[in-house]
Amino acid sequence: MGHRVAKPAAAPSQSLGDRAVAARASAARHMPAAADPAQFSNARAYADAFDFSLFSIADLTRLYELVSDASRHWLRVTNMPWCAKHGSQNILEATLLGHFASFEEERLAFLQDRCVRELRQRQPADDDERDHILSTRILHEIGCAGQIDTSEEPTLLIDALKAWG
């Protein structure tokens, strides 16, 4: 005769915090022992190895925007519950996922710096390219320093004034 499979009893409702703890514990059981945050320690090397020579000035300005958006996204991810755990003395520490998210955010920030450095070295062929370069450099300065730091970019304001009057 037919055999019915008994349904498992429904699990009691868990709070979001309980589920997060269970998910972290499950991830810890399945992580390889070699997964060490040290592998996320040199974000600058990854950014420095990037080849910008293939990109036009317009491409570089778009790349800068994309990388900026992605960097801000990873920064928000680092503040998510699964990226931190309570360590010794109940102090928050980054989880492996937290280290990865932080590494990605830092790598992309270095990539932004490299993109602007590349734009600074390029000679614009026309007014559009000049505007792309100046706009991106200004956005970067304001994003990094909250202002245009004349010690970092001594000619940026003068270049913008000459270009845009």
Rank of each mutant, 00 (worst) to 15 (best):
G2K: 06
H3I: 12
K7A: 13
P8M: 14
P8S: 14
P8W: 01
A11S: 14
A11R: 14
A11P: 04
P12E: 15
S13A: 13
Q14G: 05
Q14E: 15
Q14L: 14
S15Y: 04
D18S: 12
A20Y: 10
A20D: 15
A20Q: 14
V21T: 10
V21Y: 01
V21F: 03
A23I: 15
A23P: 13
A23S: 15
R29G: 11
H30R: 15
M31W: 12
A34E: 14
A35Y: 12
A35D: 15
A35I: 05
D36S: 11
D36G: 03
Q39R: 06
Q39F: 09
Q39D: 08
F40E: 12
S41W: 02
S41H: 05
N42W: 02
A43H: 01
A43D: 03
A45S: 13
A47W: 05
A47T: 06
A47D: 12
F50M: 03
F50P: 02
D51A: 06
F52M: 05
S53I: 03
S53L: 04
L54P: 11
L54I: 09
F55I: 08
I57K: 04
A58P: 14
D59G: 07
L60P: 10
R62N: 09
Y64V: 01
Y64F: 06
Y64H: 06
E65Y: 00
L66E: 15
L66H: 13
S68T: 04
D69A: 07
D69E: 11
S71N: 11
H73N: 08
L75H: 09
R76V: 10
R76I: 07
R76M: 13
V77H: 05
V77C: 10
T78D: 05
N79A: 13
C83R: 01
A84Q: 03
A84P: 00
K85D: 14
K85L: 09
S88D: 14
S88N: 11
Q89N: 09
N90C: 05
E93Y: 03
E93P: 08
E93F: 02
T95G: 00
G98E: 15
S102M: 15
E104R: 14
R107I: 10
R107M: 15
L111D: 11
L111S: 11
L111Q: 12
L111I: 11
Q112I: 01
Q112R: 06
D113Y: 01
D113G: 09
V116K: 02
R117K: 15
E118S: 10
E118N: 09
E118V: 06
L119I: 04
R120T: 08
R122M: 12
R122S: 11
R122G: 09
R122Q: 12
Q123C: 14
P124T: 12
A125N: 13
A125V: 08
D127T: 12
D128K: 07
E129L: 01
R130C: 07
R130E: 07
R130Q: 10
D131G: 05
D131H: 03
D131Y: 01
L134V: 07
L134W: 00
S135H: 08
T136G: 05
T136K: 04
R137K: 06
I138A: 12
E141T: 00
I142K: 04
G143C: 03
A145L: 00
A145C: 01
Q147V: 01
I148C: 02
D149W: 00
D149C: 00
D149G: 00
T150Y: 00
L157K: 08
L157D: 09
I158Q: 13
L161P: 01
L161F: 04
A163L: 02
A163G: 01
A163M: 03
